[in-house]
Design a protein around this nucleic acid. Structure first.
Length: 208
DNA sequence: CGGAACTAAACGGGATGCTA
DNA sequence: TAGCATCCCGTTTAGTTCCG
């Protein structure tokens, strides 16, 4: 998705490529020299402001650039983005996750870099002590999201109020309980009351 | 249901001042 | 003098409400 930072970064890049400042680019395009000022990008109350499509069209025309050129200036920054998420251990996950379902300050034992996921709601769990068997082996690293939508069939990590943690396939989740697949094929499904669930996160990616 | 009227939000630009 | 920041205002646009 196109971000506010990307579009403004592309404008800066376009100016730089034409040996201009942002205000110089604006003037060349027939816009007010202040059009691309920082105050035009973020309002006083912190709200993100976006350039109009007309402004973008004008600077492209003024620099002899095409829309494809402009999009290429956006693209590379996306793929270059480094995503670093907190890494916690499965053996004592209860105390490391706050009431908001995310790792608390300083609770992560280390950090790991992964590509392609939003950093805000993701964290990683390293399987230890057989806690996540049989789905995952010790040493596996799971990248999970506390806010991702969960559907039937998704693999999830559930932390119980008593400190236990388990990984399973989600069969059903209601406000009263979560129904998880049996740990052993053919065995009975597990129904865990919502009150016993400290937090639940969807498995997004696994390093095995 | 569609058009008119109203309102709020957002962008563009002017004025002014500061800094290198 | 150029570049940039802040404040402010005008215009435009999108969203909402009302009415026939």
């Amino acid at each position: 998705m196109l971000s506010h930072e990307q579009i403004w970064s592309a404008i800066d890049h376009l100016a730089q490529r034409n040996n201009l400042t942002a205000s110089g680019l604006a003037k060349r395009a027939g816009l007010d020299a202040m059009s691309f000022n920082r105050s035009k990008r973020i309002s006083p109350d912190g709200r993100k402001r976006w350039p109009s499509t007309e402004s973008v069209a004008k600077i492209l025309a003024a620099t002899g650039s095409t829309l494809d050129d402009f999009l290429r200036m956006i693209g590379p920054r996306t793929s270059d983005a480094r995503i670093v998420v907190p890494l916690i251990a499965s053996e004592n996950a209860t105390g490391q996750i706050g009431a908001n379902g995310l790792p608390g300050n300083g609770s992560a034992v280390q950090e790991m870099e992964v590509p392609g996921f939003g950093q805000e709601s993701c964290f990683a769990i390293e399987a230890r002590g057989g806690a996540l068997t049989p789905l995952y082996r010790d040493g596996d690293v799971l990248l999970v999201s506390a806010t991702a939508a969960m559907r039937k069939g998704d693999r999830v990590v559930t932390c119980l109020g008593d400190g236990g943690i388990l990984a399973a396939e989600l069969k059903r989740r209601t406000t009263r309980a979560a129904e998880l697949s049996a740990p052993i094929p053919g065995g009975p499904d597990r129904v865990i009351p919502a009150a016993d669930i400290a937090w639940m996160a969807r498995v997004m990616w696994v390093r095995q």
